[in-house]
Design a protein around this nucleic acid. Structure first.
Ligand SMILES: [Mn+2]
Ligand SMILES: [Mn+2]
Ligand SMILES: [Zn+2]
Ligand SMILES: [Zn+2]
Lengths: 138, 138
DNA sequence: ATCCTAGCTTAGACTATGTCTAAACAAAGA
DNA sequence: TCTTTGTTTAGACATAGTCTAAGCTAGGAT
């Protein structure tokens, strides 16, 4: 449960001021921001920060395995700093609200050998969909 | 297991020549095409077919619940005519090959009540990832 | 048969998201 | 200090998808 900057430093990856601001913006809350949202928030700390650096940095953190890239809706990708805790996502089909959730079993175990088509299956993620309390009421 | 055009007709949805060509293109094989791939293939039957009609038609078939829209990689969405058979997807991280798979359990049953955040959870889809035989060998 | 209307199709403009390029900049080592 | 390597930047570019306005088509009413 160490913070993202600490995890990133272990990869011999230079923590520049820009990268630090981006990592701290991502790590601060448990929401799942888009690149544009991260740019907007990070620019409050460092107004000259460029869009290219945000995209470059997010892609590098994903390649290092310390941030998850979520492409769940065909719109903007979302970035999840919670890469060191296996979890899944629950999405409201009304408003898009996304929650982290934890399942009782590993979905890889539910996939029988004769359904694996010879693949080496390494991981599985589950996207749960439904309606949040507010959207159900409305 | 009726074909897509038959299922679409049940919705009082006009089957125009353009829509028929698009539906037949989608339904013909078990791959998961992008909108551009469907346009390209459908144009072999009807060269004057427009891009806008392909996008419009795919979105309508998704809204009718007869086609699934898959946004699994942050690139183009893919369209799946197999909406009347519950299934999940297995993707090769090397080459992008995608297979339909069937799990032994419904993932919704593995999400405990205290992980549902008050949502009404209606469905879940699992994305399995790994390496196909060819990418493992390489 | 003709007209009317509603819905469908079209080309192309437009938007959103993300990548690439080339130049400037910064840091680390010789 | 000088050199080398990696980082940042603005803006051009690419890709995926939506919107608009005009024309077209099918089916119902007369
Ligand atoms: Mn998450
Ligand atoms: Mn499928
Ligand atoms: Zn909601
Ligand atoms: Zn492969």
């Amino acid at each position: 449960m160490s913070d993202l900057v600490t995890r990133l430093r272990r990869h011999n990856w230079r923590i520049t001021p820009q990268r630090r601001v981006i990592a701290e913006t991502l790590d601060g809350s448990h929401v799942h921001y888009t690149a544009e949202e991260i740019l907007e928030r990070a620019c409050e700390q460092m107004p000259e920060l460029s869009r290219a650096t945000v995209y470059n940095t997010l892609n590098e953190m994903v390649a290092l395995g310390e941030v998850l890239e979520l492409a769940l809706d065909g719109r903007s990708k979302r970035y999840d700093p919670n890469a060191d805790h296996e979890h899944h996502h629950l999405i409201c089909e009304g408003c898009g609200l996304m929650k982290d959730v934890h399942a009782l079993a590993d979905p890889v175990d539910w996939l029988p050998g004769d359904e694996r088509h010879g693949f080496t299956v390494t991981r599985a993620s589950v996207t749960y969909r439904g309606l949040c309390p507010e959207c159900r009421a409305a």
